[in-house]
């Protein structure tokens, strides 16, 4: 190899190592400080712990009501995302195959809605469903999930819409001639072909709903209903600067996400790439 190439290569490695530190070090600090006492954290926040104690993690786990909070987040995310995928796929397929005026208007409205900031509908939502109808008190999870389905449909329908156009109609026609009903065509032919697109949409939607804070914080005001982001917000208010509790609580919060990331990293990055192109 020429010396010039060697220098260029090693420069590349050095810069990449620096990037690895910049993006990885905060998480590393979170891990090592989870095992330390408050005194140790204050003495030296970057030193490795002298003894590895799980006390702080256990206390945080209990105080933040980890089990309930985690299940709440999981339930809301899984149900919302499943509904978004299912109904958006149905709608997009129907809209492509029936190019009527109604469907054109509907598609336009969905695209248009993507530029509406949440802050514009926030106060009306709070007044209509919270103040006037009392849904936030009576059916908190149901209204939250219904709202998520509404907010998530636009992107999902637009992505599915683009995909369905690429499915040859002859395929569906052939199935219909063979005696497959309209619903049968959708479930047996279209839905399976849509699987990769569904994975892309699912990833984008899960990332959004799992981490969303503002909307659920309006609706889920009782502690047994909290999701992970709300719990961390409340926790940080209760234990201001008690880093020996807050840090393990944050570690616990991101652990499931990191686990999912390590597991499905390839799909997640591919999902983001494909979601952006469309």
């Amino acid at each position: 190899m020429q010396p010039k190439v060697v220098i260029k290569k090693s420069m590349l490695y050095i810069v990449q190592a620096v990037l690895l530190v910049i993006f990885g070090y905060p998480f590393f600090l979170l891990i090592i400080n989870s095992f330390k006492s408050l005194l140790e954290i204050f003495e030296n926040p970057v030193a490795l712990p002298t003894t590895y104690s799980f006390d702080q993690i256990a206390t945080a786990f209990e105080n933040m009501n980890f089990g309930t909070t985690f299940v709440n987040s999981l339930l809301i995310t899984v149900v919302s995302v499943s509904l978004i995928l299912f109904f958006s796929a149905m709608a997009a397929h129907f809209m492509v195959r029936n190019d009527t005026k109604t469907n054109k208007i509907l598609f336009f409205l969905l695209v248009f809605s993507m530029i509406i900031p949440f802050q514009v509908v926030m106060i009306p939502i709070n007044i209509i469903y919270g103040g006037v109808l009392g849904f936030f008190q009576d059916i908190p999870f149901t209204i939250l999930i219904a709202l998520y389905v509404g907010f998530g449909s636009a992107l999902a329908v637009v992505i599915y819409h683009g995909f369905v156009k690429s499915i040859p109609y002859e395929l569906e026609e052939a199935a219909q001639i063979d005696g497959c009903s309209r619903i049968g065509v959708f479930f047996r032919i279209v839905l399976p072909i849509m699987l990769p697109t569904s994975v892309t949409i699912a990833i984008l939607t899960v990332l959004w709903i799992w981490n969303d804070y503002l909307l659920p914080s309006l609706i889920l005001t009782k502690s047994e209903l909290y999701t992970m982001p709300i719990q961390i917000k409340v926790f940080s208010g209760e234990y201001q600067n008690d880093w020996a509790l807050l840090i393990p609580a944050m570690l616990l919060t991101i652990l499931p996400v990191i686990a999912a990331y390590i597991f499905g990293q390839k799909y997640i990055i591919r999902g983001v790439m494909q979601g952006a192109i469309k």
Partner: peptide, 19 residues
């Protein structure tokens, strides 16, 4: 096929936006 999408869209964005 599109009923649920239309209904939830109205619930989340349509009605609150106009209101």
């Amino acid at each position: 096929f599109t009923g649920v999408t239309i209904a939830t869209f109205l619930l989340s964005i349509g009605i609150p936006f106009v209101y």
